[in-house]
Design a protein around this nucleic acid. Sequence first.
DNA 1: GCCAACGTTGGC
DNA 2: GCCAACGTTGGC
Length: 272
Amino acid sequence: MNNKYWLLKAEPDSRIVKGKDVKFSVDDFEAVKTSPWEGVRNYEARNLMKEMAVGDQALFYHSNCKNPGIAAFAEVSKEAYPDYTAWDPSHPYYDPKTDKVNPRWYMVDLTYKSRAPHFIPLSLLKRIADSPPDRVPPDLSYIGLQGCKSIKEMNLVTRGRLSVQRVSESAWNTIQILAETGGWDDNESRPQVKKKGTQKSKTLKRTSATSRGAASSEPEADGGGNQQPENGADEQQDKAVGRKRKRKQGDVDGSVQAPLARKSSRPRKKPS
DNA sequence: GCCAACGTTGGC
DNA sequence: GCCAACGTTGGC
């Protein structure tokens, strides 16, 4: 593969899942420096992680928050290895159907590199994506048409529900330029830039903790036709939804319970 | 295997 | 907090 760039999502706001806070902001990331990207219970996301190699570059994205967007840059520091949290019955993302002999879930380690000088809000990327094919938004003329095009093709704007995504080299380059240059009008509030040491508002901000469950689903239907997620082989990508969530190692061993995924508890109501 | 129901993601 | 989009479940 010639893809060495990725985008991974994390939630900067507190949200309790099975008794544990899944918050993992850019500040948290910078503090721990390196963190295992555990908890992904989505085949497509997992497969993408399996493709990652040490040294690959990644975009750290703030999701499910007031200002979603790219907050920092990171690097893959450890190739995919079994996600041990899947075997821990006390973990929110415990998966009873997998074991150490035949790991189902994997994770990589990501190491924080630097903050995006200019936080890149999703709204900006969307604005670019919505711009005419032959025009570059005036305030972003410096990225050029090619830059615009690369953004328009990002999974971030074309799909959205994937917690781990591939990023093309051109999109990566464009993001770099945007982050360094800034200059757009709509950069309203942004989470980054920790002002003075005490900025870590740990105040419990409750986001809309509706009822996000843990992992997503189980089977991973694949558009192509390969629906086998497992097989140690090199599966491509299946598709399933991704989950994003990350948390710093420190609070990992909380101990909770609750499995994940909603297998078949669905009360189906059918006519007649 | 189709497809309606409904859970989840995640922006707004 | 609302809700659109997406995708999975599972009856038939």
